[in-house]
Amino acid sequence: MYPHGRSLVARMKDKPFTILGVNSDSAEAYKKAIKEQKITWPSFWDGGTTSGPIAREWAVTSWPTIYIIDAKGVIRYKNTRGKAMDQAVDTLIKEMESAPAQ
């Protein structure tokens, strides 16, 4: 996810787009990962455990788990990765750009 995430964020830098993490590491491991993997996007920290409150509410039992949410806050894709993730994000961007401005 990290190199792919970095390139996706770079490609979308002028678009209304973000990666938002929910991290289940210990605080130390999380800080280390951010530094070493050059992670620039924000993350919720889920208390240092895989059974943290956010993972529990979202019934996450395997990692990584990915949801793609559109600008209106609607879940549009689940566990879409790699190229398919890029295509999904492109589709949603196009959808936004072609929708009449409100």
Partner: peptide, 17 residues
């Protein structure tokens, strides 16, 4: 999460283990 309304969000549950 709602701070990002208006943006497309890839919500990524991750860990670096």
């Amino acid at each position: 999460l709602s701070d990002y309304r208006g943006q497309i969000v890839v919500l990524d549950f991750w860990g670096h283990w």
